[in-house]
Design a protein around this nucleic acid. Sequence first.
DNA 1: AGACAAGCCTGTACGC
DNA 2: TGCGTACAGGCTTGTC
Length: 278
Amino acid sequence: MPELPEVETVRRGLERHVLGRKVLRVEVHGPRTVRRHDAKQLVDALEGRRITGVRRYGKFLVVDLEADKTLVIHLRMSGKLRYAPGGTEDHEPHTHAVITFDGGDELRFIDPRTFGELFISAGTNEAGRPVELGSLGLDPYLEKVTVEKLEDLVTARRISLKAFLLDQAALAGIGNIYGDEICFAARLLPTRLVAGLTRRELASLAKAIDQVLNQAVASGGSSLRDASYRDIDGNLGSYQMKHAVYKRTGDKCPRCASAVESGTVRGRSAHWCPSCQM
DNA sequence: AGACAAGCCTGTACGC
DNA sequence: TGCGTACAGGCTTGTC
């Protein structure tokens, strides 16, 4: 489940391997890989052009190319990018797109559940971001989350803290794993209504968002048993070993040793410590 | 065998 | 009336 830390790790790998490289050939398989427009449009935008930048906004990867072409990638649940040096013939199952560079090295898009997608942006807004990403909220890794910003974002919102953290239009990049871990780090229950959080609690939340995401990026993200996230070179992340509550129902809370509980909040699984989260 | 998980979109219902 | 919200369903397939 690539969330902000995983996508940031992929972005760094992408920058290391493909920045400045010239695309020779692009193959797209399956009708769901490119679904916002004709696949040929993507092939034509990429072939013959060099990659000039690799950005990330929330869970979206943005690959800039010469002639102001912009490739946008979202991995959704099971999408992976894999860099394969030239001569690595075997494509693993569910390889839906292959970008071959000058010299023969390949960038492969693999996605068993086919929720992920690639598309060419129709243009950029005044901030230089793809217009399709216009509704994304504040990216807590690119921009510092302050109490003031959180106060602005939660006013008049009658939703739970967990729902707020998952709302990509408020904060971009947090998914179910980091949502639970941030609530734990902030000592706040996921069911709390955001409009009712005190300034002190919002300060704790801001600090938790910053700490959890930074530590997760430093650990190369989280790799779980299912969907098994790996970075662009096939390496696993290690932040799952630091998860305090996510999928740890019944385990001892690392802070107070109470048993971790779980349930459903806004239709999504949630995990929390009943003693030290309030 | 069948429920479930994930992110995100869409349709629908409902309360303030 | 209308907005914001919750909830269910859809998409998909590996895992339990």
